[in-house]
Amino acid sequence: MADASYTTPAGEYDTQLGDYFALLKPRVMSLVVFTALVGLLAAPVTVHPVIAFSSILFVAIGAGASGALNMWWDADIDAVMQRTAKRPIPSGRVPAGEALSLGLALSGMAVMMLGLSANLLAAGLLAFTIFFYAVVYSMWLKRSTPQNIVIGGAAGAFPPVIGWVIATGSFSIEAWLMFALIFMWTPPHFWALALFMKSDYNDADVPMLTVTHGRRATRVHIVVYTILLALLAVGTGFTAIGGPLYLAMAVVLNALFLKGAVDIWRRDETQAEADSYKIEKKFFRLSLWYLFAHFGVILIEAMLRPFGMGGW
C-alpha cells in the first residue's frame, strides 16, 4: 500500500496534540469555564455534579471550537500582528483546513452534547454564542467597525448566562446582570491593550478605535465605559446575586479601576511612551483581576447562602 498520501516529508513539522489544543484558546476557555461555572452555581437550583461537570465541559469545548474557527478566519491578520504571529496557523504548525474542520466538528459535538446533558435552551444559547463569535464578530464586525470590541464583547459575556440556563432552564435578570458585567468590561480591557500594543492593529488594518478615531479618543472611551461599568458593578451588589461581601469588594475594586481609567485619560502619548505605557499595562493587568474578583465573590456569596450567610 502506498502511504505517501498520509506521511509528512522528512524534516517537515508534524502537528502535535498541543498545537490543536492551542487552537482552542485555552486562556479564553479558562475564563469561559470560570464564568459559566459561577452562573451555574449562583442559580437558585441545585444541579447533579455529573450533569454540572459535563455541561460546563461542553460549554468549554464549544468556546474552544469558536476559538479554532476564529483562528482559521483570522490567520491572515494573526500573521502580521506581533501578539498573535506565533499562533498555530500563522506559525505553520496547523494547516488552516484542519483548524476549520476541528472547529466545526467540536461546535456540533458540544452543542449536541449540551442539549443532552442539560437542556435545549442552553444548547441553543451555546450555538448562538459560537455563531456570534465566529461569524458576527470575527467575519463581520472585527474588520468593518471600530465598535467591533463593543458588540463582539457579547460573545464573551454569554457563558454565565449559559451556566444559569443549564441550572434553571430559563433566563432571569441575575443572569443578564452577569452578562452586562462582562459586556461592559470588555471594551476598556481591550482598548487598554490596543494602546500599548501600539502598531499591531495598524499593521493588520483592523479598525480598532486607536486606528480609526485616534489614541486620545480611545482614552476618553476607556474612562466613559469604566464609569458605566463601575455603576453597574456596584449596583449589582444590591441584587439577589450580590451581598455585603460583594458590595465591599466592588466598591474598593471599582474605585481602583476608575482611578486607573482616569490616569489613562489624563495622559498623552508623549507621557505614555516615556514610561513604556506603564499605566496602561497596569490597568490591563488590573482588568484581569477585576473580572476574576467580581465573579469569584458572586460565587462565594452563592456558596455561603446554604449556611444562612451570603446575599442580603
Partner: peptide, 28 residues
C-alpha cells in the same frame, strides 16, 4: 512504519480523550 512512532504521543492522546468521552457519556 516510522509514522506510527513519530505520532505515538498524538495517537495515545486522542485515544485517551475518546476513552474519557465514552466514560463521561456512560456516567451522564
Amino acid at each position: 512504519h516510522e509514522l506510527h512512532a513519530r505520532r505515538k504521543g498524538r495517537n495515545i492522546g486522542v485515544g485517551l480523550m475518546l476513552g474519557a468521552f465514552v466514560v463521561l457519556v456512560l456516567a451522564l
